[in-house]
């Protein structure tokens, strides 16, 4: 329908019109669609209210969360103290689970980013028989609920490990390896989809020019394609890292001894009472990610502004 509304000459005229003058009116129109500012602001409040509660109670002098009993930094001190040796068992476990989370997140992000980027290159830049099937397989992790994925993977490892033990006598155990395999499995798709999107937005002419000038595939990728799709790759990697840090179910069903992550620790804690140290740690993590993500967005914004 949209095509019939817009006939070619009209569009040509429009392009010539000064964008800035028109923008005011366009915004008025679309502003009505977004319910003015009421819905967005209510939504932002909705998103931030629990976070504010969390931050607030990380400074609460009481261990319980129903009442405010004055201001304290104790929980933060506990978190920092537990980074050293000789700390209380529970804080030490908290820090260990944080380390595990970061380790698993980092390794699985690296593997998933490399594999996912390769897959994206393949999907966006070449044709081969069975590509449709690959396309389908790529979507599988996004359409399988986590609980099914976690349990099916656990059953799979059990069968494989039993087979290995029966044939070689060697005992394989779940642990970091099994968790990372699971995390990579669901992250490949997300990375591939994000990177493919940035490849699709990139004209093939850059790469063709590089080939014309005699560069081989390897050179072309590193000197031309890679720098151009780097934002996409970073975006995909960030997404993968976030998903990995947040995962509870796949980790729960495939963990071994000493490989529990932060979500596993927190969930165990929720069964009794959440210690304010968790609130403090969450606030610290939030602050760190705010600075990191904020800086990157600010830089992108500056670059974008310059590009405009």
């Amino acid at each position: 329908m949209a095509n019939t509304v817009l006939s070619q000459p009209k569009f040509g005229q429009l392009v010539a019109v000064d964008d800035r003058i028109k923008r005011g009116r366009i915004l008025q129109t679309v502003g009505r669609f977004s319910g003015g500012v009421v819905i967005p602001f209510a939504s932002y409040f909705f998103l931030w209210a629990p976070i504010l509660v969390l931050v607030l109670f990380s400074f609460n002098a009481s261990r319980t969360v129903d009442v405010w009993r004055g201001f304290t930094f104790d929980w933060y001190l506990n978190v920092f103290n537990s980074m050293g040796a000789g700390s209380a068992r529970s804080s030490a476990t908290l820090m260990e689970s944080l380390r595990n989370s970061l380790f698993i997140g980092a390794i699985s992000t690296i593997i998933a980013t490399v594999l996912g980027t390769m897959l994206a290159l393949s999907m966006a830049r070449s044709k081969f028989p069975g590509k449709k099937i690959v396309d389908g397989i790529l979507l599988v992790p996004m359409v399988i609920p986590e609980i099914t994925q976690g349990i099916s993977l656990a059953l799979f490892f059990k069968i494989v490990f039993d087979y290995v033990q029966n044939t070689t006598g060697e005992r394989w155990l779940p642990g970091f390896g099994t968790i990372i395999i699971g995390h990579v499995a669901f992250n490949i798709s997300y990375v591939a989809i994000v990177v493919r999107a940035s490849l699709q937005g990139l004209s093939k002419s850059y790469e063709e020019a590089s080939y014309d000038l005699g560069a081989n595939y390897w050179h072309t990728f590193w000197r031309v394609t890679f720098p151009l799709i780097l934002p996409g790759i970073i975006g995909g990697a960030l997404l993968a890292f976030t998903l990995s840090l947040d995962d509870y179910l796949i980790t729960f069903y495939n963990k071994g001894v000493g490989s529990g992550t932060l979500p596993i620790y927190v969930y165990g804690m929720l069964k009794t009472s959440v210690s304010p140290e968790v609130n403090a740690l969450s606030t610290i993590m939030l602050a760190v990610s705010t600075v990191l993500v904020g800086t990157s967005l600010w830089l992108q914004g500056r670059n974008g502004a310059r590009a405009d």
Partner: peptide
Amino acid sequence: SGVLLALPSVLWLVLFFL
């Protein structure tokens, strides 16, 4: 090259997902 690039991911997903 397309097949080669897709192969590791596809293997990973088939083995650890499907």
